[in-house]
């Protein structure tokens, strides 16, 4: 019984971390599905979102919900501008040029954040910090982890409704399936792509805010982005539910590896999962195989 409770707690912790991976992977996937670019700076955008929330809530002393909302909006606006000013110009260059471009941006963001907010870890008090929730027979879970899981579920629901019910969401789906056809139908494809960047940056900011009670924000927290690659690849790089499921799987496996395997394994678990997926099932769990008809 004791070990079962311990196992459950490990799994919940892992699932919470995994939700963060999943949300960042969701950002990759949204952008990749639409523009075939992979944004290696997604983790850094998350870091900027965390710092923005710290500025509003921690420094200006705003209400947690208002400040978080403002931080999400600010990060989304940043994402929109990033596409409109930088990424739109490299359309037509080879894919690896975009990879290098976003990597370069990642380093710039990191230094920019260091200059603006300093190199110390920062955090602010959230309604979920250091509170616990007890369930029936001795299962004790941190409210922080539960808030991450709950927040992720709510966000996914909102995104699902947005993509399937609203005009803009359907326009986004159309542009990512066939740019030219969408353009002919009168969809402003370029603006739609910038809005997708904005959504993906906003999702990253949500991930950052949810992560605050668990982990402090600092200049290097963008590293999580690399772990999210494993989640995105596991989910099939192009499938939105896949990214989330992939994130949770990677998070749980990482927690279990940290508990049962010798030290050193936890850091590389996500990378080993990634390579294993590429070798065994390259299309991922949910990937669809697209064949071109000649």
């Amino acid at each position: 019984m004791e070990s079962l409770v311990g196992l459950l707690q490990l799994v919940i912790n892992g699932a919470a971390t995994g939700c963060i991976y999943g949300l960042i992977a969701l950002g990759f996937v949204l952008i990749y599905k639409a523009t075939e670019m992979v944004n290696f700076a997604q983790g850094e955008i998350m870091m900027l979102g965390g710092f923005a929330a710290y500025t509003f809530v921690g420094k200006f002393g705003m209400n947690y919900w208002v400040g978080s909302g403002l931080a999400i909006l600010a990060t989304a606006a940043f994402g929109y501008l990033l596409d409109a000013v930088v990424l739109r110009r490299v359309i037509g260059q080879p894919q690896f040029a975009v990879v290098m471009l976003t990597l370069g941006l990642a380093f710039i963001f990191r230094a920019g954040a260091g200059i603006a907010w300093g190199y110390d870890s920062v955090a602010f008090v959230t309604p979920f910090t250091n509170s616990i929730v007890k369930f029936g027979s001795g299962v004790v879970l941190g409210a922080d982890n539960l808030s991450i899981i709950f927040g992720t579920l709510v966000l996914c629901g909102v995104l699902y409704l947005f993509f399937s019910r609203t005009r803009l969401g359907i326009a986004m789906q159309a542009s990512s399936q066939n740019q030219l056809a969408a353009y002919y139908m009168g969809i402003p494809v370029r603006r739609v792509f910038s809005l997708i960047w904005a959504i993906s940056a906003g999702v990253a900011a949500v991930a950052a805010i949810l992560l605050v009670p668990v982990q402090m924000v600092d200049v290097n927290s963008g590293i999580v982005g690399f772990k999210a690659f494993a989640a995105a690849v596991l989910g099939g790089f192009g499938s939105i539910p896949g990214a989330l499921v992939g994130g949770v799987v990677v998070g749980v496996v990482e927690q279990l590896a940290g508990f049962y395997l010798p030290t050193g394994f936890q850091e590389v678990t996500s990378n080993i999962v990634l390579l294993a997926v590429l070798i065994l099932r390259p299309q991922g769990l949910f990937g669809q195989v697209i064949r071109k008809r000649v």
Binding site: Q93, M100, G104, F107, I108
Partner: peptide, 15 residues
């Protein structure tokens, strides 16, 4: 972080 960010900036400008 001056050096890596400068590399990043130059990389972005070159591309």
């Amino acid at each position: 972080g001056l050096e890596p960010s400068l590399f990043g900036l130059i990389l972005v400008l070159v591309i």
